[in-house]
Nucleic acid binder design. Structure first.
Lengths: 224, 224
DNA sequence: CTTTGTGAATCAGTTCACAGCA
DNA sequence: TGCTGTGAACTGATTCACAAAG
């Protein structure tokens, strides 16, 4: 056993991991503006966080700044990209090519950030003639073949809620170990398989909650 | 001043607020299955959380359960819906009718959860002839009129990143106080305006980070 | 006897404030 | 002198474990 855990084996807090992509995007923006160096204050402003949090977050990756100066934009950008793992190319399959699946297939932000959509699958044979984002929509039955062929470890679910769990089960069986779920349902997956969800209507409901309280506060003000 | 803050003025932790929509969905599912009563254990399982957390969350709303028995599904569902504010109808405008805007306009989960899309706006005149989800795509210039006419307080941004901040500014100026941002950029808004973001590629990047570490762990195992 | 509702304990995340280095 | 990197203090969220209620 070495005294220090080597390389990228340090454990980074979940909250920090969730912000690294934001910093990466901010740094890309600064680089495009021709900025070569930035302080924690400037980068924090572009990323929409406070500078103490930014510095603490970066400290989990290592000491990539220079005291009295700041950070080299390009160097830091590379270090964060490497830490996240987006310097390599991740093949991805999307299952469920309805409105949302369409939008995801065409989303350029995946391609530009190290993700390559290798296949679009749908259970409905009527969709198998479609070509979306330059890819033919294929049968869900082809999942195993595609996963094996392209060594896919990340799957995206954009099916209706009722189909989502069975799609997830089949993904796991075929060897996928990370799932991004857009279907409005809770998925269960075995230990070792990561599931993240994006729920469009939940975010709106959270806004509605706060909006309702604003209205309440105004009423209270008027009454007082 | 009363000793106890009245009605819904109690303050509920942010983490709890974010889970209430999940409980609401789980309860709707149970109700559809014909379940009339459930324990915290059962509801927690449907929502994908542990039962202690569920009970603590519900305790912020009030005492809606019966000791020794559990919760009445329909009654609890209504109480949570009321607390979130989705018993009323929230008019919403969507700006940016590209692939994602299309998908959002057609998303049935909004309608069924108390949100009514009253207008689709786009800056591109070529899109103004389109009809999406039964609504004509209108000019972004109509924003103020529509917000005033329908008393809109929630706006959804699905434009490219470069346009997002100016759309947000214009929304705020027109009276919108809650914004859901799908554009991959950090928005700034004045005090009193809530902004939430949904970033499709950030979620994938978080999965990639964990996926990369799994691969690393396997390598370490092989070496040891 | 079962299951809720909740103080107390624990754990994670954020902010503060300043020592240490360029 | 200026800005990073980080212990220490603080704040918020989660989990535990049990008293209170039906």
């Amino acid at each position: 056993m070495t005294a220090r855990t080597p390389d990228s084996a340090r454990d980074i807090p979940e909250a920090t991991v969730a912000r690294l992509p934001v910093y990466l995007r901010a740094l890309t923006g600064l680089a495009e503006d021709g900025t070569t160096t930035c302080s924690s204050e400037e980068l924090a402003a572009s990323a929409g966080v406070n500078s103490a949090k930014l510095r603490k977050d970066l400290s989990y990756l290592g000491s990539y700044g220079t005291r009295g100066v700041g950070y080299d934009v390009e160097y830091l950008r590379y270090q964060i990209a490497r830490e996240i793992g987006v310097t390599q190319d991740w093949p991805v399959v999307i299952v469920g090519i309805g409105n949302l699946g369409h939008a995801l297939a065409n989303y350029s932000g995946f391609r530009s950030r190290g993700f390559r959509v290798v296949a679009l699958l749908d259970a409905d044979p009527d969709r198998h003639t479609d070509v979306v984002a330059g890819l033919e929509v294929r049968s869900f039955e082809d999942l195993e073949t595609i996963v094996a062929e392209h060594d896919v470890s990340i799957g995206v679910i954009a099916t209706p809620a009722v189909a989502a769990q069975s799609v997830a089960d089949r993904m796991v069986a075929s060897g996928i170990t990370s799932i991004l779920n857009f279907a409005p349902t809770v998925l269960t997956a075995p230990e070792g398989v990561d599931v993240r969800k994006v729920d469009l209507s939940i975010e709106l409901q959270i806004l509605a909650y706060h909006e309702q309280r604003k209205a309440g506060a105004i009423e209270t003000e008027v009454l007082s």
